[in-house]
Write a protein that binds this DNA or RNA. Sequence first.
DNA 1: TTCTAAGTTTAGAATTAGTCTCTCTTGCAT
DNA 2: ATGCAAGAGAGACTAATTCTAAACTTAGAA
Lengths: 149, 149
Amino acid sequence: MDRQEIIELLNLRGIQPSAQRVAIAQLVLGTDEHPTAEQVWQKASESLPVVSRATVYNTLNLLTENGLLRRHALKGVSSVFDGNPEAHHHFVDEETGELRDIPWDALEVSGLETLPDSEITGYMVVVRGRRRNPTTDKIAQRSRKEGAT
Amino acid sequence: MDRQEIIELLNLRGIQPSAQRVAIAQLVLGTDEHPTAEQVWQKASESLPVVSRATVYNTLNLLTENGLLRRHALKGVSSVFDGNPEAHHHFVDEETGELRDIPWDALEVSGLETLPDSEITGYMVVVRGRRRNPTTDKIAQRSRKEGAT
DNA sequence: TTCTAAGTTTAGAATTAGTCTCTCTTGCAT
DNA sequence: ATGCAAGAGAGACTAATTCTAAACTTAGAA
C-alpha cells in the first residue's frame, strides 16, 4: 500500500494526512501482522525523525475510530492493532501469545438468530491452541495475501 | 453460595482458605457478573479491613489456575473474571461494555477441523451488539422460542 | 505574502493495570 | 511451647496508556 493510497484513505474520512499519520497508517495497514503500539512506535521512529508515543497512540486510536483498524485486547497486557478491518476470526497461540487471522469463510456459526433480546452488530470466533507446524504456515499466510483487494 | 461451601471448594483443591481468599472467591463465584480485578478489590475492601490489590490478583489467578474461574481479555484494557468456568460464549453490549454469557449449546461452530497446522485447545464465539429493550422484547421472543431453559 | 485560528505534535506528568519482592503468618514437627 | 519451612499478603514497583500544556503547522482569509 503506497503513500498516496493512504493519503486518500485519510482524506476520505476527513483526517488530515500529516506526515506522522501517513507513516503510522502505512505501517499498520500495510501488514498482516498484529503489532503492539510499542512496535509501531519503534518502526515509526525509523522512518520519521521524531515521533512521540502519544502521537502513535493518538493515531492508532483515530484510525480505529474511523474503522480502518481494529484493536484487540487478547494478548497479555498490551493491545494489538489489526490492519485488516474485514470481518475475520482469530487464532491465539497459547505458547507465544501470537495472534493470527482466520479467514471469515473458514468457520461458520449457527444459532445466532435464536439469541433473545439482542441486536447483533457482529461476531467472531476466538480459537485458542498451539501452532503445530511453522513452515507450512508461511505458505498459508502468503496465499491469504494474494486474495486482497 | 455461602462461606462454608466456598471453603470446601478451596480445600478440595488444596488451597488454604484464608479469610481474604474466601471473601474474594465468594465475591466472584457468587455472581453472574464479570467483574474486573479492580471491582473485586473494591468490593473486597468493604468486607475485609485491609486487602492489597496483589492479594486480589493472586487469588483470582489462583482460582483461575484451579479452574474455578476464567479470565477474559475482551473488554477494553482490563481483564474480567468469570465465575462460570463451564465453556460458554459471550455477548458484549457495545453501549455499556457489559459482558453476558451465552450458553454453550446456543451456538454451534463448524469448520474447525479444517484449520491447518494447529492443535485446538478451545474456542468461543464473541457476539457484539446491543441489548434490546428487555421488557417488551422478552414477550416477543418467548413466543418464538418455546422450550428453552 | 502575512496573519490568524484551528488542528497537530511533543515531552513529560499522571493514571491504571498488573507483578515483584520482601515480610509476616500459619501449620506442623519437635 | 518453640522453631522452621512453606505459603500468604502488603506495599513498592513496572509497564501500558492517556492527559496536559506548550510549541509548531497548516489552511485559508485579508
